[in-house]
């Protein structure tokens, strides 16, 4: 069962059972909805920006352990980050979960996001892990459309 425990790390199970920042932000100045048509997972990301900086971030929705934990850890990681830093982290995260080499020297430190490395062994679960990130990008771009993993 080594494969499974690399996917469902303790940190991931913890965040899926007790998601952090799991609420709507009252004074959110932007939000976006994400939907994975494959499994019906839904997520809404709320942002309160201060200039180019994410002052507050939260999420709501329903999904599997991977997508819930990913959204939860995303909100923890990105609070206080700039738009540019968030974009760089998304790129690094995407490489991590799709099994592409992560630029450890030049890229941003992944921190807690590193627990998602095991996802790369489960290609069908990559979309679960990246749904919240696609949704974040729509929120940052203030795109009106629903973010989709398709």
């Amino acid at each position: 069962m080594s494969d499974l425990s690399s996917l469902y790390q303790e940190v991931i199970l913890d965040h899926s059972k007790r998601p952090r920042n799991f609420h709507a932000i009252e004074n959110a100045d932007r939000h976006a909805n994400g939907f994975n048509p494959l499994c019906g997972d839904k997520v809404t990301i709320y942002l309160h920006m201060s200039g180019d900086r994410i002052e507050d971030i939260s999420f709501q929705g329903s999904g599997c352990a991977i997508s819930t934990a990913s959204a939860s850890i995303l909100t923890e990681t990105l609070k206080g980050k700039t738009r540019e830093e968030a974009q760089a982290l998304f790129e690094a995260f995407h490489k991590l979960v799709t099994g592409k080499p992560v630029d450890s020297a030049g890229g941003p430190p992944l921190g807690k996001l590193a627990v998602f490395a095991g996802v790369s062994e489960f290609p069908v679960r990559v979309k679960c892990a990246s749904l919240a990130w696609h949704t974040l990008r729509s929120a940052l771009e203030k795109s009106a459309a629903v973010a989709s993993t398709e």
Binding site: M1, D3, L4, L7, Y8, L38, C39, G40, D41, G63, C64, A65, I66, T68, F122, V124, R125, C128
Partner: peptide
Amino acid sequence: HPHDVGTVLDQEGIAVRTGH
């Protein structure tokens, strides 16, 4: 979530469908 059930069952060699 059904998706997590499906992934764990797959590791046991069991193929089920999860989703809508």
